[in-house]
Amino acid sequence: MKVLYFAWLRDKVGFGEESVTPPTDVGDVAGLVDWLRGRGGGHAEALADMAMVRVAVNQEYVTLDQPVAADDEVAFFPPVTGG
């Protein structure tokens, strides 16, 4: 699974992209977030408050109950500020 971080989430995590293999009981975004937080350090800090974080799976906005699978691209980022 490819995981991307943008803006201040990338700053906190320390990098913008990683390839991860979560355990098989991680079935949705919420489970993935819990598992990533459990790795500690920057991940725990970046994903501490999901009210501040938006999530996209395969480049579409999703909610925390969205299922995720091994070949998905999951992105975490702050509310957008373009324009």
């Binding site: 943008f6 803006a7 996209a56 702050p78 957008v80 500020t81």
Partner: peptide, 20 residues
Amino acid sequence: KTKAPFWKKEDTAAGARWVE
């Protein structure tokens, strides 16, 4: 402004900060 995934970071005298 609310849906396209862009993020702005400003350089100010007090340092760089992500725009909220």
